[in-house]
Amino acid sequence: MFEARLLQGGLLKKVLDSIKDIITEGNFDCSPNGLSLQAMDSSHVSLIDILLESEGFEHYRCDRNIPMGLNITNLVKMIKCAGSEDIVTIKCEDKPDNVTFLFESKDNDKISDFEMKTMTIDDEHLLVPDQTYTAVVKMPSAEFQRLCRDMAAIGDTVNISVTKEGVRFSTTGDMGTANITVRPNPSGDQKEEERTEVQITEPVSAGFALRYLNSFTKATPLSPTVTLGMVPNLPIVVEYKIADMGHVRYYLAPKIED
């Protein structure tokens, strides 16, 4: 059986908000290591990779690997019924037809349980190799969100170029062009999460669809910083770390010159 108790139930809402615009269903894989999900969007252009490590739960029990196929839209509806301060417990049997969500209010004066039907999802899992990135950019997640939104107002595709001087985001649309350069700032008075850091072994440049990058920024409430990893001619990874728990990562295939 599987049973996991999460003290910060609001975290589940944030995780679901970060994927609900991209996928409509997915297999949550319960394993002794934690709860994970890998799923492609319907156009198979991007890949979501979520990990919530077992250590991040107050209580975690998983005797064997269990794929828990869930409709994300329905899951969002159910988790919305939890208060943002509620403690959430997820429970299911080894071959579940249903998953139970137990919500306990912080003061323990209200307990709710919801049961949701599971579904069988045939999805192919991709093997994402442990990659050494040519360029890694860490920046405030709110700034990345703003930047993607601004770029999307002008064009459909953003070209991201990383050099040791900084990261340049460029786009072109019917009305004109836009360029935004974010420079690594010196580690002065700023808090770590307010800094922009660039690590590169060589300059990298590639084009990506803004529609997807904008969807990824729905994960902004999960982390004060976002990390972009690039390798020439490979998908970009956009990572939001979840403190003491794991991550939400998005991989987006580049646009290639025809």
């Binding site: 492609m40 295939a253 580049p254 646009k255």
Partner: peptide
Amino acid sequence: KKRQMGIASFFARK
């Protein structure tokens, strides 16, 4: 003109 690649063309299937 740029062409959108699919994600599965970059990663092996498990």
